[in-house]
Design a protein around this nucleic acid. Sequence first.
DNA 1: CATAAAGTTTACCATTTTACTTAAGTTTAG
DNA 2: CTAAACTTAAGTAAAATGGTAAACTTTATG
Lengths: 161, 161
Amino acid sequence: MQLTRRAEYAIRTMLDIASNLDDQPLMSKEIAARQDIPPNFLIQIVPELRSAGLIHTVRGSGGGIYLTKKPSEISLRYIVEAIEGPIALNQCLIGEASCSRKPNCPIHEVWALAQRQMLSVLEATTLAGLVDQSQPGKRAGKTSTATDVAGKINNEVELEV
Amino acid sequence: MQLTRRAEYAIRTMLDIASNLDDQPLMSKEIAARQDIPPNFLIQIVPELRSAGLIHTVRGSGGGIYLTKKPSEISLRYIVEAIEGPIALNQCLIGEASCSRKPNCPIHEVWALAQRQMLSVLEATTLAGLVDQSQPGKRAGKTSTATDVAGKINNEVELEV
DNA sequence: CATAAAGTTTACCATTTTACTTAAGTTTAG
DNA sequence: CTAAACTTAAGTAAAATGGTAAACTTTATG
Ligand code: FES
Ligand code: FES
């Protein structure tokens, strides 16, 4: 029931890059140092973020990492699922692999709802919002902070489970 | 990020007992058969539910299991935490074991909120509500179903994280 | 073109968790 | 006293977790 270190490190990495205002790519080693990530662990996570299409990587001397999309288009849910695969609070909530009990299981709806509530928050939170929070005034535009999200959740559209 | 089998089986067990209208204790073996739980696994889970104060057990011939509290007083959250310990979506949300990054971590609030949203659902759902749903008309009284909860969540009081 | 700086790939590793199974108790009704 | 029921304590195979390490490829630069 807990986020893995890999995913936590992935979030820190993405946030670190989003906070970088220069447009030169960042080195994995520097990110690791700034974000308290074991460097040799991070260079294992970086390729996963790349295959997920979240970052571009430049090899060779002078290379590094930069974002593929705008920070406002990258949600926490997206990052977590890039590393851990689809989020599912219970086995029976994964894709169509239904357990035999699903048809008349009274608990199923509850988990589905709990998951929707949780995903709403992770989906409404973008890197842009998080950057704004830690560097107020450095960027303009409408972004959402965690506390904004609290009031906003209830207007969210239905998310598929 | 997923419920363990132990906790899932614990929920099924509690629900099975709550659905039992006779007041004679139920045998672990019978519960296991009805709820598709490996019997030898369940007899390992039962003592945990007992130490958590959720059930009473009667030993010896004719013995079995019955609930300690009324089904309306037992929430899903309570059952899950009896088996898995405190629910925490991220390490830094466990008790006071704060990571060194917490003071200026912009992500922390987000996880805290996501967790509150999820816990609200698990806390608002009681065994009584679930029983009502699968056996309509068999019990009276005000209980809450999963779909009721959906509209109710937003009025919930603040939960500590 | 040699070299160092960067990411890539693959493999390895110890520890813990998970989901069980097994077996030897202990208690109690009948 | 004996069978029925819960209790306790091991044991176990497989997977996940959180890393580490080494060999490889690409590219800028001198
Ligand atoms: S089938 Fe999904 S919770 Fe029971
Ligand atoms: S300290 Fe809790 S998420 Fe960063």
